[in-house]
Every structure is written in C-alpha cells, then in structure tokens.
C-alpha cells in the first residue's frame, strides 16, 4: 500500500459466521487508510452489511484480527468500545432514527452523547439540517418524514460529529439522483477534512461521482479487490492521502 499513510483499519484473515451457520465473510485481509474514500460493492447477500457491522463494532469476528485506530478491537475491553464508536459515523441501511425524537434531536444526539453544550450544538445542527435540505423540518418526527428525508436525517446524524471513519450502508438508496449526488458531496467534504469514508452501494453510477475513490468488492463473503484496482477508472496505485 502507499507509503506514509496511516492505517485506520486493518483486517487480517477475518472470518464471520452467525451461530452455527457457514461463514458469511471469509479470509478478509485488507487495510483502510486514513483520509481515503472507499466504495464497497457486491451483489445482495455478498456480505457488505456484515462487513460494515464489523467496521462499526456491532459484531466481533469469528476469527482473525481487526485493528482500528491503532488498537486491537478483538481484545479491547467492552468498556472502551464506546470511546471507539464515537470516532465512527454510521449510516444504517434502515436509518435507525430514534422515533420519538425530532429530526433536530436525532441529529444532535451524537453531539449530546459527546457532551457538547446545547448552545454550542444548536447552530451546527441547524446548519447540517439545512445542508441536507431539511431545515424546515427540524421539528418533524421520523414517522412524518418520507424515506428519503429519514435517510438524510440519518446521514446528517452520522456526519455531524465529524467522525474519523464514516461507514454508510446504501446511504443514497431512498433519495433522488440529485440528492444522492449532493449527499456524496457531503461525504466528500467530510473526506477532505480527513475522515475515511466507506460507502456500501449497489449503484455503480455513484462510483463515478468520486474520482479518487477506491473500490472494494465482496463476492460470496470474500474480498475480491482489496487494493481498489476496480475503481473507475482503474488505477494500480491509490492516490496519496489528502490533508
């Protein structure tokens, strides 16, 4: 991999199985570098969501080793996982908004969990909701929002605290193409500030929207392109990390 870039995530021979079933992920060995933009592709059932679960610490692997931010995730005491999770931003495929909270309170939740004062978070949350086109709906509960609006709230929540690693599972699946591109720009903006971004998507058109992105492809639980050689257009060496 490229010289001088920091490994933010490292998988070594990772396998994952649920219960006594077969492995849904096998022999995953790859590295995510700080400040890069990754697309994770693969057919339905290829294991994208399972891989993302490992990345956002919702699941421990059945075998292998995972290092994140320089620490061994497997042996990390459970009590130290929340601190690690606060360095992550996650866009869940099913949004996972808190149903009884307004769009504003959902977006503000990561900041409140991190101890940001109310007077400090009010403007940034409002700005973020404006950014995703929901400034006028900040008081709306998720149930009153459309699927696309809920998705934008989920994305705003994931990026509001400027995570070091953003993991997004089909983040543009419920929005129109124009909004999809706009949200990608949001991810790129975050990426330019140093956040490593991993976006799982079926949408090959999206891949073209981020020229410097790297592509990881899962086929039946195996990483077929951990180096990002399948990016659009293909290139052999990843670009240097941006500041």
């Amino acid at each position: 991999m490229m010289a001088g870039s920091e490994d933010i995530v490292r998988f070594d021979n990772v396998g994952l199985r649920y219960g006594i079933g077969g492995e849904v992920l096998s022999d995953l060995t790859f590295t995510l570098h700080a400040g890069r933009f990754y697309f994770l592709t693969g057919a339905s059932g290829a294991g994208k969501t399972s891989l993302l679960k490992l990345l956002y610490l919702a699941q421990r692997p059945s075998r292998g080793a995972i290092r994140m931010f320089g620490g061994d995730v497997i042996t990390l005491p459970r009590a130290r996982l929340p601190a690690l999770r606060r360095r992550l931003g996650v866009v869940f495929q099913d949004f996972r908004l808190v149903r009884h909270l307004s769009a504003f309170d959902n977006v503000a939740l990561p900041l409140r969990l991190s101890g940001v004062r109310e007077d400090e978070l009010r403007q940034p949350v409002a700005d973020m909701l404006d950014w995703v086109g929901l400034g006028a709906r900040s008081d709306a509960r998720p149930a009153t929002l459309s699927g696309g609006e809920q998705q934008r709230v989920a994305i705003a929540r994931a990026v509001i605290a400027r995570p070091e690693l953003l993991v997004a599972d089909e983040p543009t699946g419920n929005v129109d193409p124009e909004m999809a591109v706009k949200l990608l720009r949001l991810f790129e903006a975050l990426n330019r500030l140093g956040t490593t971004v991993v976006v799982a998507t079926h949408d090959v058109h999206l891949l073209r929207q981020v020229p410097d992105s790297l592509i990881m492809r899962l086929d039946n639980g195996r990483m077929s392109d951990p180096t990002g050689a399948l990016r659009y257009p293909p290139r052999r060496e990843p670009a240097p990390a941006r500041a």
Binding site: L111, S114, V116, D130, A161, R162, A189, R192, L193
Partner: peptide, 16 residues
C-alpha cells in the same frame, strides 16, 4: 462545496 460549519465544532469532544 463548502462543508457545514459543524465539522469544525464537534471535533475532539470527550466522554462527558
């Protein structure tokens, strides 16, 4: 495209 101002404000918060 300019990033929302929030990005600069929510960094490095502790475990309050």
């Amino acid at each position: 495209m300019r990033a929302p101002s929030v990005f600069a404000r929510a960094i490095g918060r502790g475990q309050a």
